[in-house]
């Protein structure tokens, strides 16, 4: 049996619907059609009335989820693409994120964002929005990089009493496979050492974990041992695991698929620089997408975002310092 990252997301939702009557799914085309990516395939048939097609109204979708959560439900909202969540941005950051602080009433909603680039996606179907949401108090932001995490973290997202932005990477939907679903999971907020090493720490999340692992593989043939830290969730961000890794290697490279200004890589470096400056043997480095909208053509897209090719160049440079 082989389970894709996408199927894991579907199965997690199926399990959530089966186990918790408070759960329902609301989004565009999620009903009988099964979703633009088929992440809700057959769920409307299996759970009648609980997987509901929404009009093309991201603001109203999120707003309704908030209202339902106030009444004790556990809605899962599917944004067709992460990029479209900007239309629901107001509800997410001003209403959902602020509700518990303002009123002490929790807002347990899960918003699934099919994120990141795929070949041919172009400027409006490729964005990585995680840093924008992580900026706001009151939100949890998950960025699973493995099939196992896609499954267990989505279940955890539904169980958490706060709004969770679940950034699932579209590039991993079909590429990533596992033999079976996990039976246990790491707690939310804990990073994972995806590969151990002693010469350089690469901190990554989501699809970039796999680019980093490819770099580790390549450099291993030259006798360099790269440690890859998979953040899993970017908020909360597991600074301790990152710091412990940097303590072992003395060198830090942070890789993210999002745009370069601010963001997760900057946050990680800021934390390491302020709390663990003495651990560093070289200036910490970061690698992100280019500071332009995400391009359509595969030739441009391949260079726009970090890949093993560009990460290995940055890693070698850092190792020479």
């Amino acid at each position: 049996m082989s389970i894709t990252y996408l199927e894991a997301i579907r199965l997690a939702q199926k399990r959530a619907l089966a186990e918790d009557p408070r759960v329902f799914i609301y989004g565009q085309d999620v009903g009988a059609f099964g979703g633009a990516f088929k992440a809700t395939k057959n769920l409307a048939q299996e759970f009648p009335g609980r997987v509901i097609d929404a009009p093309i109204s991201e603001d109203a979708m999120v707003g309704a989820a908030i209202g339902a959560a106030i009444e004790g439900m556990r809605p899962i909202i599917e944004m067709q693409f992460a990029d479209f969540s900007t239309v629901g941005f107001n509800q997410i950051i001003n209403q959902a994120a602020a509700l518990h602080w303002r009123t002490q009433v929790p807002c347990p909603i899960t918003i699934r964002l099919p994120s990141g680039g795929t070949s041919g996606g172009g400027p409006f179907h490729s964005q990585s929005m995680e840093a924008i949401y992580a900026h706001y108090p009151g939100l949890i932001v998950m960025t699973p990089a493995t099939v196992e995490d896609a499954y267990s973290m989505l279940l955890e997202a539904v169980a958490i009493d706060d709004p969770v932005i679940f950034c699932e990477h579209k590039y991993l939907y079909y590429h990533l496979k596992a033999d079976q679903l996990p039976t246990e999971a790491m707690p939310t907020g804990k990073a994972r050492i995806a590969r151990s090493g002693r010469d350089l720490t690469i901190v990554a999340y989501s699809a970039m974990v796999h680019e980093a692992l490819a770099v580790a593989e390549e450099l291993a043939t030259e006798g360099t041992e790269v440690e890859v830290v998979d953040l899993r969730s970017i908020k909360p961000l597991d600074t301790d695991t990152v710091m412990a890794s940097v303590a072992r290697t003395g060198r830090l490279l942070c890789v993210g698929e999002a745009f370069p200004w601010g963001g997760v890589t900057a946050e990680v470096i800021a934390r390491v620089a302020s709390e663990g400056f003495g651990l560093l043997d070289a200036p910490p480095q970061r690698l992100n997408a280019k500071d332009t909208p995400v391009p359509y053509h595969p030739n441009l897209w391949a260079v726009h975002r970090p890949t093993a090719r560009s990460i290995v160049v940055a890693a070698r440079k850092l190792l020479r310092q």
Partner: peptide, 25 residues
């Protein structure tokens, strides 16, 4: 009894969601 946010129209879908939840229940 909902506490409004300042963004106009933003409370309407929240009321909708509460009504939907009641339908579910």
């Amino acid at each position: 009894y909902l506490p409004m946010i300042s963004h106009l129209g933003a409370m309407i879908p929240v009321v909708n969601g509460m009504l939907l939840a009641r339908r579910f229940k």
